[in-house]
Amino acid sequence: MTRIYKHRLFWPVVALAALLLACTLKRPDILGISVLDGHLFGAPIDILRNSAPLLLVSLGMTLVIATRGIDLSVGATVAIAGAVALTFIAGSHDPGSLGTALGAVVVALGLCLVLGGFNGFLVSGLGIQPIIATLILMTAGRGVAMLITGGQITTVNSAPFAALASGFLLGLPVAALIAYGVFIVIALLVRRTALGMLLEAVGINPDASRLAGVKSKTLVFTVYTLCGALAGLAGLIFASNTMAADANNAGLFIELDAILAVVIGGTSLAGGKFNLGGTLVGVLIITTLNLTVTVLGISPLVTPMFKAIVVIAVTLMMSPRLRGMLAGLRERRRYQEVNA
């Protein structure tokens, strides 16, 4: 029992369960899944689908954070991806064709790779602090997205592109399939290859890693590029959901939600050891929170406050000091010293 309590995902999972419980108390049938036209429907499926963009962004963010970094620009990248894709479709001769949709996806993802690479270059090539290096694109990015759409909210009609968010495959939402598919691929990639270990080594001790022959710069560059591409993919799902490129609001604050998800999942912002499973739990908490707030009949405008409460609760519960206090260590001073 005490071991479960000590597991680093204990409190996050408790939080998730509490949110779901709150939902069922209000509406006992909410967690049911029904089949309609061969597609699955219901709140759990909604959560899966709604969590797709955040999961993609958080995945990239986790890897970036593992290297002692942070990427503030993902929200802007989301906006740019949507703007590029929809502007591409709007400008093509045959907006409804599959080829156009694919073209839009390729162009948008390509650009996002470049943007991620730009961040990666600033951080690994020029050695600029990640928080400020990515602040640049965060600030300028939405301006760039506006530039692409010409300040309009571009709306298009393209069935193949719309399927990205609203389509179903094998009874499941396409968006969820993409995001969770990517999650599984990346999870396998980092743990079955040496990528995970090398990223952690770079995050824990960059100097030692360099002397051990780890290509730190290349690795760091790669994760920022990957993070950009994943944000781009998230942006495509966003854009496909609304079929309107809203440069101002697409992916607004998603970087903050993603960072929250990572932190809730038990990966330290100080870098090093990372936990993709934890990030998944964090993403689910944040997505479920939106549902819970709606179900409880609270104005969605107040959602940020509940997010704050979850974050404060989870981070405090994970803080060594509070754990120490809870464990009944009366002599706080002494504890500090051991850690000092």
Binding site: I131, M305, V311, L322
Partner: peptide, 21 residues
């Protein structure tokens, strides 16, 4: 409580925004 400034103030940001509403 040794919460990183980024996270703690992020929570503060959300809390204040929610309180506004």
């Amino acid at each position: 409580f040794e919460v990183q400034p980024f996270v703690a103030t992020l929570a503060g940001m959300f809390l204040a925004r929610g309180l506004c509403f």
